[in-house]
Design a protein around this nucleic acid. Structure first.
Lengths: 244, 244
DNA sequence: CGATTGTAGATTGTCAACAATTGACTTGAC
DNA sequence: GTCAAGTCAATTGTTGACAATCTACAATCG
């Protein structure tokens, strides 16, 4: 996508590169949710020292891809329905904001970029290869976010997209109706190109309403099931919110 | 605010506590923007080892309170007008989302919490103490965010609020019209209590429109000044987007 | 005199040894 | 048999020493 720019040496330090490798492993599903991770074993596997590996693990913890239990262990998060609800609602909000900004101060270059990304999505759907469609889908949304020039929004969206990808891999929630894809995205693209900020925001925000509703429904069902049978389980499902 | 719960020993590891101390120092303005930080000196000052301090610094870097230049140095970020624009627009979006969710599934307890926070704001305004008003203001918004139960939104908002506080400290942008404060927040609170999700979102989102507009205006002026005098400066202002 | 190359000091990056903490297991008293 | 305290192995937390890298300055050549 953005490779052939120039072939420089990777001057980042070891822990960043170790984090890249781990991130790739996690997002590709090689490490399963709930799985425990020991520093010594992973460090040996990646052939770096424990200190370096710890720095990488902490970086991934900040990205929400891993959890730390102080003095005890590292482990991959387990996704509940409320996690899905959180991910999709937050994503909708950020994409809505991006679409609004994109529609507001769009330039010729921006319009070209969006149209190109949309064309890639159309071509991907025609090819009927699900993986390619998924990539083009993510790419289109990322393009919309990036042309806003809002660096903090871009960074934040990247982190969230990672968690969404992780969730999708873990829950096998990749089912898509290929025919709907194009008709779902076209109005968003049109609104942005037309400069209709309000419409763009609303369309983008509610773009994955089905997922949100499904997750919300499953969530209340989950809660009901947990509360209906009187006292049965004791441990509250601890979330990742360990940050100060 | 949430102290007297129980007086336990702080069982978090050293690097977390070191990060707390540093965060406090940064947010209180004891370290000025652009200032360089050397690991050895800071480690000696806090009486922890360099490794521990590095972990704390990296945590703060993830929170956007500090920047790292690989192999070279750590330094505090310098805020430009585009930073202010980014912070306030993103904050508006997140607060809008929070207000919408709060209005949608509000409970008696939630309504009580919001009303209490609003009363504290009113009382603070009556006292005419700016610092107290600022605290109550932040507290009200935080309350709205927290009653959504959306853990990722809560975490994200906390990080953003930190950066906003840092910006305010660095730019002395604390000027407020005390009389306006209450009349600005009342409609938001009312909309949430009334369950009017759409109105709550819009009101909360555009709540600090003045700041956004001021920052946006200053931003384009900044750009114009940088482009009008032909080629004069060379270095593009590097932003914090170092994360992979 | 200007540009390039080499060198020195300071600073960050990496590592492996040591300390602290945890959780499971064993032991013993009641 | 049950519960409590004690012990031990595994794991994470912390540290100081060593290596790699950067910046600034000095030396050298044209």
């Amino acid at each position: 996508m953005k490779s052939a720019r120039s072939v420089k040496v990777d001057r980042r330090s070891l822990d960043w590169r170790a984090a890249d490798v781990l991130r790739e492993q996690i997002l590709s599903g090689k490490l399963v949710p709930g799985q425990r991770i020991t520093e010594t074993a992973l460090a040996a596997q990646l052939e770096v020292s424990r200190g370096t590996l710890r720095a990488a693990l902490r970086a991934l913890a900040h990205e929400g891809l891993i959890q730390q239990v102080a003095y005890t262990k590292w482990m991959l998060p387990e996704f509940s329905n409320s996690d899905a609800w959180e991910l999709y609602t937050l994503r909708g909000t950020l994409e809505g904001m991006a679409a609004r900004l994109a529609a507001q101060h769009r330039t010729a270059k921006c319009v070209l970029a969006i149209e190109a990304a949309f064309e890639r999505l159309v071509a991907a759907v025609k090819s009927k290869r699900h993986a390619r469609v998924a990539d083009a889908d993510l790419s289109l949304h990322k393009t919309i976010v990036e042309i806003t020039g809002h660096q903090r929004l871009i960074d934040q969206y990247r982190l969230l997209e990672q968690q969404v990808r992780h969730y999708i891999v873990c829950s096998n929630a990749l089912i898509m109706d290929l025919n709907q894809i194009v008709s779902e995205h076209e109005p968003i693209v049109q609104a942005i190109i037309a400069g209709n900020a309000e419409a763009a925001e609303t369309l983008a925000r509610d773009h994955n309403a089905p997922e949100v509703e499904r997750a919300a429904a499953a969530m209340v069902q989950e809660q009901a099931a947990a509360e209906a049978p009187p006292p049965k389980q004791k441990k509250a499902s601890a979330r990742q919110s360990k940050a100060a």
